[in-house]
Every structure is written in structure tokens, then in C-alpha cells.
């Protein structure tokens, strides 16, 4: 446990030669400060938000498998090899951190959120988080608390909805008719 001293640490896992630290959303800023000051992760390279709505459910990613794997004799089970492991909440935010030092250590800081659950801003820790957090709000609808200027970044100011969510319609747009108020 290299990162046992990170505040609010829930779990530390190693997969695909990458370290993922899950922390409590409420203690995110403390965790980031500790990683920056005590572990030397001086650069925030990316914030990636992911929506897990319908994770492992039918019709979302091709077809559906069963808990034990695929049954080739049953129709509509040819998509997934097996059901993916369930996720704790709907959204994950992944902060990819990098230390500018030999060996280029990297770590992924992960928080889990439900729809509408606010998350503290890390702009005071890394100013570069500004646009990444605005992007997460704009495209995924993660309300960032304490961000100095949380406006839409990519979409228009009056846009409705958050396009990268899984329940956002893929095609078409509402038709406005002339004479309609």
C-alpha cells in the first residue's frame, strides 16, 4: 500500500500496470493536495468522466451475456463474454496524475458519484483543472462545487442536457414549427 496515507482512500487497485486510487468525493481536495505535496504528483494531465448507466444491461453494449458467460445456444447472448463487475455508483471521475521525475510515475484518482451529487473543485490545487472540470460539467453533467466559473465550455450556453451521458439521445433534434410560441 504505497498510498495508504492518502486522505479518504477507499481502495487501491492495480490493473493493466496502472494504479487506481478510489477516494471519497468529500475528501477529494485533501487527497489531491496530499498526492501533489507528499507524493510528488505535480501535474494533473486529464480529468475523464464516465457514465455507467446501463453497465452490463441488455441493449446498451451490443447484446447481453449471463453471469457465467455466453450461452451460444440462446439467441441474443453473443455480445459480452460475461457480465461486467457492477460499479458502485453511476458516474466516475478519473483524475490522471503524473509526476515530472525519472520513471514517470502515474496514478489514477477515481471518485464515484450519483446523478446530481456535487464534487469539490480541484482548481485551487491544479489551476489546469479549470477547463477539464468545465468539460465534465458540460458534457457529463457533474456539478463541480467551488469552481470559479462553471459555465458550459463546449456546447452553447443555452444548450439543454449533457451529450456524453448514456441516456442522451443519439440522433435527431426537436423540430420547431413556424407560428409556434
Amino acid at each position: 500500500m504505497l498510498f495508504a496515507d492518502v486522505p479518504g482512500l477507499v481502495s487501491e487497485t492495480e490493473a493493466f500496470r496502472e494504479t487506481t486510487l478510489v477516494v471519497e468525493p468529500a475528501r477529494l481536495v485533501e487527497a489531491c493536495t496530499s498526492l501533489r505535496d507528499e507524493h510528488g504528483f505535480d501535474m494533473l494531465v486529464d480529468i475523464a468522466a464516465t457514465d455507467y448507466l446501463g453497465w452490463g444491461a441488455p441493449g446498451v453494449s451490443g447484446y447481453i451475456g449471463t453471469a457465467v458467460g455466453r450461452n451460444l445456444n440462446r439467441p441474443m447472448t453473443q455480445g459480452l463474454q460475461a457480465l461486467p463487475a457492477p460499479k458502485p455508483k453511476r458516474f466516475s471521475l478519473n483524475y490522471h496524475l503524473l509526476a515530472i521525475q525519472p520513471g514517470a510515475p502515474r496514478v489514477r484518482l477515481q471518485v464515484w458519484l450519483d446523478d446530481g451529487e456535487p464534487l469539490p473543485s480541484v482548481v485551487p490545487v491544479w489551476p489546469g483543472a479549470d477547463w477539464f472540470e468545465r468539460e465534465a460539467w458540460d458534457l457529463m453533467g457533474i456539478p463541480i462545487e467551488g469552481h470559479p466559473y462553471l459555465e458550459r465550455l463546449i456546447m452553447d450556453e443555452d444548450w439543454e442536457g449533457h451529450p456524453l451521458r448514456k441516456d442522451y439521445p443519439l440522433g435527431g433534434e426537436p423540430v420547431r414549427f413556424s407560428g409556434e410560441e
Binding site: 494531465v45 486529464d46 464516465t50 453494449s61 459480452l80 460475461a82 461486467p84 478519473n94 490522471h96
Partner: peptide, 18 residues
């Protein structure tokens, strides 16, 4: 950077380019 999530299916669940 490229952050990719897979659910084990034939399509990416999430792709994010840094």
C-alpha cells in the same frame, strides 16, 4: 492521452482523449 473503458463487449464503453 487516451482513456478507454471496456465492458467486455465489441464496442468501447467510453473513450476520452486527453
Amino acid at each position: 492521452g487516451c482513456y478507454v473503458v471496456s465492458d467486455g463487449g465489441p464496442r468501447p464503453w467510453r473513450v476520452k482523449f486527453r
